[in-house]
Amino acid sequence: MSKKINHIQILIVLLSVLMTTLGCADKVRIRNSAGEEHGLLVDGQSNSGHVNDRDRVSTSITIDVGKLRASSSTNEIIAFTKSRPVAIRDNVNWTTHRDIEEIAFSDKIYIPVTVWIVKGPYTDKLLKAGNAAVYTIGIFDAENVGIGFSEFEIINKTSMTDASTYYNFAPTADPDDWKNNVGWKDDRINIYYLETVSGSSTTGRAVGFSNFIVLGENFGDIAVVHEIGHSFSARHKSSPDFNKKCIMWPFYNTSDPFLYFSEGELFRMHVNSTSALNSVYNARPGLITRSCVGNVSSDQCVDWRKRLWDDGVLLAN
């Protein structure tokens, strides 16, 4: 009889322990879900030490993130979803109790872009620029970038006086010559369709990772998204962590289309203070900015290789 009681007591104790460890996991609630899948990266302290970027993917609006308490390092939630910018909440007050912390996505960011067609024929270049706008939006939407174009203005400068002076952008060229003589708008990304960039008609360049982009006349329409990525502070990616389908691969092959940004790169595009989103558009006023330029990773900077979803043959990591 007493042996039976002992077994029951042990069972009750085990169940209590199980309830305490599993039932009291902290949760993150998405405040304004659009009904799409959400991806989370969470920082805090677990029993085994500091947690940096614990990942979760779920269609639920309340997502179990495991048991966390306040860390002496970072305590934050980073969230990704379709058609919304990356959301970040820092200084999350994780406690030893069961926490339900909320995070909200901002509305999609709409930015204006101006295209200056310097070398014609104008209609051909108009169609190229139009293609570029369409393909860029296709990739932005598919890759959860959360950015659209409020305006994709195309200006014809092919008949300006001395247009041919500005056809070729040499390695040592001064962008101010194009800004002052062809045209320039301070508050946006400016794209110039020229003849060559550093001697090549298929080369493009976001000069100094800025909002000044020059393209050779045969630059791929789908590859314009790559140059815009540079304006958003994104850097080149290479194997083995990435492949040719990465938008930030150094060259684009027409028969092998671009497919993805890693979540680590998306994070940088939104939070880096040098990203045109912040430095030119001020599109995230009052929101967190950081300096995660290049391939550095830390508690503050998500690993640039981090992917929450599979990217073609490269699996989520």
Binding site: T203, R205, P250
Partner: peptide, 17 residues
């Protein structure tokens, strides 16, 4: 062929030049 049949980047490593 990869470099010739696509678009390249100038100014960083891995350039066509």
């Amino acid at each position: 062929l990869d470099y010739l049949t696509g678009s390249c980047e100038e100014g960083e490593e891995d350039s066509f030049v």
